[in-house]
Design a protein around this nucleic acid. Structure first.
Length: 193
DNA sequence: CCCTGATTCGC
DNA sequence: GCGAATCAGG
């Protein structure tokens, strides 16, 4: 597969939305997450909201197979960029408004079934109860792709908030809530594949 | 062990 | 330019 204009566009879009490289790769198909990341770098858009490693002072890593690359030109090059990360002119947004990053909550994920019906393993429910005690109680505004979107309380009252705990990979909920949210599928027999 | 992005370097 | 291999961190 090659990086057609459309594919690059989708890449930019998804990356901008905070999608992970693997997710983007999966969506695009025919490419690995490495390819996506590589492309991202080449496109100049690399940093976005805090990622896995927030503090990375771009340390010069001397690897094992260190190539005796004779660069280090003593001549003061104006375009040398050994400097720590600074603002990158890569995205000269002519639009002063619209924050570059918007925590868009895609409605793609299945909405949480209200924790009422369904017979969910007592353990799972217990776990949820426990989790809800230490939930971050975040508001809808604070939801991101990485926060558990499990609603707690009555939406019609003030006693309503979202779990907010770190959601599990790809899932919209945290560990505990994933347990009760995605369990209903076949409790007895019916074993797929 | 799962994941994440970052970087390098042969192609 | 591309991306697998590798690195480094959560």
């Amino acid at each position: 597969m090659s990086w057609t204009d459309e594919r690059v566009e989708l890449l930019k879009k998804m990356w901008g939305e905070g999608q992970s490289a693997s997710q983007i790769a999966k969506e695009l198909g025919g490419v690995t997450r490495n390819a996506v990341i590589g492309k991202v770098h080449r496109l100049g858009l690399s940093n976005r909201a805090g990622s896995t490693a927030p503090a990375k002072p771009a340390a010069a890593k001397a690897k094992a197979t260190a190539k005796p690359k004779v660069e280090a030109a003593p001549a003061p090059k104006p375009k040398a960029k050994p400097a720590p990360k600074a603002a990158e002119p890569a995205a000269p947004a002519p639009k002063p408004s619209l924050p570059a990053r918007r925590a868009i909550i895609p409605a793609g994920q299945p909405l949480p079934p209200q924790p009422s019906a369904n017979e969910i393993p007592a353990e799972a429910l217990a776990k949820v109860s426990e989790v809800e005690k230490k939930a971050k109680k975040i508001s809808v505004m604070e939801l991101t792709e990485k926060t558990c979107k499990w609603p707690i309380g009555d939406p019609a009252t003030d006693d309503f908030w979202f779990c907010g705990l770190p959601s599990k990979q790809g899932k919209p909920y945290c560990e505990a809530h994933v347990g009760v949210a995605f369990q209903p599928m076949s409790s007895r027999r019916d074993r797929r594949r």
